[in-house]
């Protein structure tokens, strides 16, 4: 009797019904506006991290030689930076779609106002846009991993393990980017975002191990999302994998969930006045 009555008294605070379909319709809209030129831009996106890999990993790597890992093992510089390039490319890709483009659609194209007049909810717009950013990010990551394997910077099995990690990184940064987009006021604030992103890129153990920095800076680095991502991908690529990496995954999952929730709430506040 009790079990029979229960469902009626449970208040429906959040309804997940139809959420997937409605989010997908937002992604679909992005696919519909792909034009010939934009295709070229999209497909060629994977070139960028590859160029970095050749310039910094191979070119500068020739000046550096081998680097010692924490365990004492020596690895070539390209092997050391490649996973970090992968992680930061996942970050950059997710951020460019969810900050610049997302902000433009929200503020200037007033695209979301039109969508919100339909059954689609703010959180579903956020999810749909995020999924779209991920479709691209996933393609780029796969291409980059292929190149890493071809250059013998990692093994095929390890590349397979790194792939889902890059997807998670992309989702986490995408959610973070959206939250940031709902906070900033104008295009000028993007200079701040670019500067922040650049700082992350330079100091997150990407080009040199964080042990190269003074203790205080090092602890600061340890808590940045990009460092956690680099740590995860690098461990998967070069080994060994341990509890720290489980922590990395939890950290990124938390960023994803919190980011999405906050972004959805703030969008609702901004667009549904």
């Amino acid at each position: 009797m009790v079990t029979f009555l229960m469902p009626r008294f449970v208040p429906r605070l959040v309804s997940f019904e139809g959420m997937g379909r409605r989010s997908a319709s937002v992604t679909e809209r992005n696919i519909a506006c792909l034009r010939s030129m934009y295709w070229v831009v999209m497909v060629s996106g994977f070139v960028e991290p590859v160029l970095y890999l050749f310039s910094i990993g191979v070119g500068v790597g020739a000046l550096i030689g081998d680097l010692p890992l924490p365990g004492g093992r020596l690895v070539g510089y390209a092997e050391f930076v490649a996973p970090a390039m992968l992680a930061s490319a996942a970050m950059t890709g997710a951020l460019s779609e969810t900050t610049f483009n997302f902000f433009g659609k929200m503020k200037f194209m007033r695209l979301y106002e039109g969508i919100l007049a339909t059954p689609v909810r703010p959180i579903e717009i956020a999810l749909g846009e995020l999924a779209w950013a991920m479709v691209r990010g996933v393609l780029y990551s796969a291409a980059f991993l292929g190149i890493m394997v071809a250059m013998d910077l990692t093994s095929a099995a390890r590349a397979l393990a790194m792939f889902p990690a890059t997807v998670l990184i992309g989702f986490a940064f995408g959610a973070l980017g959206m939250t940031v987009s709902t906070v900033i006021r104008s295009w000028q604030d993007f200079d701040l975002i670019v500067a922040g992103q650049f700082a992350l890129l330079l100091f997150s153990g990407t080009f040199v191990p964080p042990t190269a920095y003074p203790a205080v800076v090092r602890w600061l680095i340890e808590v940045t999302p990009l460092y956690r991502s680099v740590d995860l991908v690098r461990a998967l690529s070069l080994g060994p994998v341990g509890w720290t990496q489980a922590l990395d995954v939890l950290y990124l999952l938390a960023v994803l969930v919190i980011g999405l929730t906050v972004a959805g709430r703030r969008m609702e506040k901004m667009l549904c006045k």
Partner: peptide, 29 residues
Amino acid sequence: KLGVCPQLDNLDIELSVRENLTTYARFFG
């Protein structure tokens, strides 16, 4: 179950006239 025509047009400038209708229909499933 509502149709809304807001005071200021917020059509999707990245899409064609027909696509504006077809993509919008998808938001309703």
